[in-house]
Amino acid sequence: MLLTPEEGQALLLSLRIAGWATFWGMIAATGFAWLLARHRFPGRVLLDALLHAPLILPPVVIGFVLLMLFGAQGPIGQWLDAHWGVRLAFTPAGAALAAGVSAFPLMLRAVRQAIEAVDPRLEEAARSLGAGPWDRAVTIVLPLALPGLVAGGVIGFAAALGEFGAVITFAANIPGETQTLPLAIYSALQVPGEEGAALRLSLLSFAAALAGLLLSEVLLRHGRRRAGR
């Protein structure tokens, strides 16, 4: 299937935006998963619920909240613009933020389960052998949690790739800037007689998600072999 330049553009943009959303989302998810899995502190349950909020909020509300916080008039948005000259609303980076926030709870759950599944006695053994907290995290816990981390990354990537409501609300629908595949499909459906284009784009997003899934399967097998399971 040969792609038109517009389709190619939407595909590449989608992969880039979903890629960044997954990258930053996984870093945040790993940090918070660690905090929730390994530490007891006041407000833990509240934080847990708050981090899961994107899962139960309508995506359009996520986009709206992001606009209020990160938009040109929002407190964080103003601060970013004043100190770093960074604008998020209606930009590709903003689309990645919206997609990443929407997909975040899925990544958090997968990573947290993976970290909780690592036998704490192995960490204790590493500790008695002279490994400090960071050392143990890098050499014991994360390698053993790797299959779960990969799974979290894949599900996060797939969710970010498909995110519609939060992206269109926060980053709008600008071809070549923030128009990801779902947004391009939506635009095509707005024009009478463009159902064929919409179908092609739908197949394209299906293929992209499938490729991600297959890639993760390969990574997972490799990881399992290394982990000895």
Binding site: D119, R121, L122, E124, A125, A126, R127, S128, L129, G130, A131, G132, T139, I140, P143, L144, R226, A227, G228, R229
Partner: peptide, 29 residues
């Protein structure tokens, strides 16, 4: 703290690191 005590511990379950070879387990400490 335990990681600076210089106390080697062996439990009834060996607790070897499953993702490392025997050689890498041996040299971990």
């Amino acid at each position: 703290p335990p990681e600076r005590r210089r106390i080697g511990i062996v439990h009834q379950d060996a607790r070897l690191f499953p993702h490392m070879s025997v050689a890498r387990n041996l040299t971990y400490g």
